[in-house]
Design a protein around this nucleic acid. Sequence first.
RNA 1: AGGCCCGUAGCUCAGUUGGUCUAGAGCGCUUCCUUGACACGGAAGAGGUCGAUGGUUCGAAUCCAUUCGGGCCUACCA
Length: 915
Amino acid sequence: MPHDLPKSYDPSDIEKRWAEFWIKNEFFHVSAPESGAPSMFSLLLPPPNVTGRLHMGHMLNHTQMDIVVRWHRMRGDLTLWLPGTDHAGIATQMMVERQLATEGKKRREMGREAFIERVWEWKKHYGGVILDQMKRLGDSVDWDREYFTMDQNLSCAVRETFVRLYEDGLIYRGKYIVNWCPRCGTAISDLEVKHEDVAGKLYEIRYPVIGSNDSITVATTRPETMLGDTAVAVNEKDERYTHLRGKNVLLPLMNREIPIITDELAQPEFGTGAVKVTPSHDPNDFAAGLRHNLPQIEVIDEHARMNANAGKYAGLDRFEARQQVVADLEAQGFLVGIKDYTIAIGKCDRCKTIVEPRLSEQWFVKVEPLAKRAIEVVEKGYIRFTPDNYKQIYLNWMYNIHDWCISRQLWWGHRIPAWKCADCAEIIVARTTPAACTKCNGAKLEQDSDVLDTWFSSGLLPFTTLGWPEATRDLEVFYPTSLLITGFDILFFWVARMIMLGCWFMMPPHRPVREGEQPLSPEEALPLSVPFKDVYIHALVRDAERQKMSKTKGNVLDPIEIIEKYGTDATRFTLAAMSSPGTDIAFNPSRTEGYRAFANKIWNAARFMFMNVDRLGVSVRPACEAGTGVSDFQAATLEDKWILSRFNRVAAEVDEALKAYRFDDAARGIYDFFWGEFCDWYIELIKPRLDVENRASRESAEVAAGNLVRLFEAALRLLHPVMPFITEEIWHAIYEGKAPLKSLALAAYPQAAQEQMDLEAETEMAILQDLIVSVRNLRAEMKVEQKLKVPIQVFAEDGVRGLVEQNRGAVERLANVSDVAFVGESLAKLAGARHTSRFDVHVVYERPIDVAAEREKLKKELERIEKEIANGQRQLGNEQFLAKAPAQVVEGIRKKVGELEVLREKTKRKLEEMG
RNA sequence: AGGCCCGUAGCUCAGUUGGUCUAGAGCGCUUCCUUGACACGGAAGAGGUCGAUGGUUCGAAUCCAUUCGGGCCUACCA
């Protein structure tokens, strides 16, 4: 049995087999050639967290990446898709802490070293889940290059970048207000704080002015912070308070004297126009405090509890303290009022704990110089966004960027390469552990206990994974990477940081230079410093009701379950077909069901092909190597010329679609072609030619079979990037397991060939299809029994008549017609006839016709035609239209009106005839 | 507070610089057909004044303005 395909399509077996085969054979491994600049395509996989499991968003992202990557590979580009996983500082640490908790252990009790060891242990056991899932998807990544962000070489590069930024004056350490998560016990960046509108209260508190009976009322949403107040601010322009300037107030509950200052912090329009100033617990107040040299009194500690400075409130949780403070203020007559107020409260992105602005010593990146370049490369078009509206979103963010807090009080991550001298408190930043203090020569040095924000290291990946800071060939050949496909949720977290860091470290003086080569000038280097040239931002995958998928809602679809149910190919196809830019995807499994049907259709078409090839005993081995579309196709008949032309046209469309990241257009184009044209028409049309037993010659049968196989093989290549498994399976079957290449993934992507396009054949085929559909239509209207063959009459001009005559058999078979008779005059007037501008056709069948209904229909039809004609003629009579509209459009309308006029006459006559 | 996106058939969505659009597809629905590739199939069909209003234009689902409805992002206003 040469072409052995099981009777039914079962994706699970096929997909498992090929996924393993691809990996085992390392088809997707590439290395940079020794010299030259090959046509290449490179893409960095957004590294999933080691803690990660595949979700629908990944599935979409991976599908799109794999399509693009396979497409480029088949086009002959040296294609690198680089996989890896991210150590994901907070996420992973939380995961392991949770595991420890079940054993009754605590991180702090274990100590740093033991804990980190435990995390590595955890990573070894559970960290690979997502990679295994990726393998199931058929992701054609270069597994030989798989990295982990904490690998030795990458960690070295991280340290190198830190030191260089420090040397460049772009990293500083200081005591500032940062976002502090009391649960995670670490600082987090602005981006890791998610704001949420909640119903809160605005408390108005009266502060008595010392030396008078006057008092000043301030408003706050956080009354507990008043314990740390060191001033009250009013606006300079606010005349209500002119008389109080320079005076002091007595801070209630604490009985501390604090000054009334004038500062822009206070806006006259808001509340009373007076504002309490708490430099230790509010970023604005912090800034105001610096302006006025105010003391910083911390009253809340790292666990969000009141500390000793809070007097009698010490030890209370911040929310307990709030209640207590409010109660005491009220009791003592300082509470003026409480109003309902909506607050945008900041929560920790990871654990949803309410973030506390806290004064602490942290490391920051001074981002302005980095942002300047990151803006320039996008404005100059060195990086393009798809959809392009993300360009503006990116730029707006970049224009307003703040310094980036990069230190985290965690244990899992890249430790900051800074040491503090125990003797003189000097901070030493170095690549390797320093032996002695650079200032006092003391030997008691302690490394900073903080680790870096995970996004700092992921921001470096485009160049560090290719060997930076060494001047490697990989870096030379594959950087800038060609494309990045990712979600908008990490546009700022990751995409923006990669651009900032890439355009810093791949620019002189940091850009590695190969020995004996001249360094590039900044102007030359800038376009080449970008981490990627294209960014494609994919949509969010929602559930069928357009709801965001979330665990709490319980509407999370597991891609693995979908895959098990419908197959990876069908799932991939669904996501591709639904990937229209800028719109979220409402994932509906019913769609996937439909695409599994498509896979099944392909499967059965293949079985049909093999059945015939085997019956005829022919062996067809289509060429599939570089530069090949459909080869050795013998276009003997109209349907041959037509399908070949259509194939090439579709190949061109698919290519265009993929170039523009229109995965939906590409998928749909192939779907419509394969099902709607190849299966529904072409296969049906050639069936008689394969029937050597009854009506066909052996020779013509062999030609037909050959064409069928060659076209099918090319179609498989066209479809392979979207549905890699089923195409690989059938493709190998075509060659009976002895394919000229080891994998379809290595074959050539079909390129449209102009000489194989045939507009005339397409036009003729369209007429024939129209005729056949018309007859089927009439049959259905007249309720002719399905099986009954009926004669038809056709009236047409010579050209069309000749066409129908030549393809009489096709008409007879596909429309179930017993005989085609040509008549010399129009049949339009006959009831039970149908007319187009090119032909009239009448089904000869005795069946009473509902004349009234028929008339109504015709009337409506005539109205429509006349409206259309009027419309067209108005345009054609308009000079401005003729002058401005493209010639193609004018010609198209002219032609259409001509055809419509023929139709109108026929319809009119028929109506008259019917009375 | 600022910005972005969406509103097209019962459902989910296409519709690429305004014109060849009689606005398409899948699913669902109706009728017929188990014909040797496929019922995960074949054939035929019903179904939409393109959220609303106004404007620009010879021409608008497409551009502009306003408006209603839905979603999202950014933001240090107590």
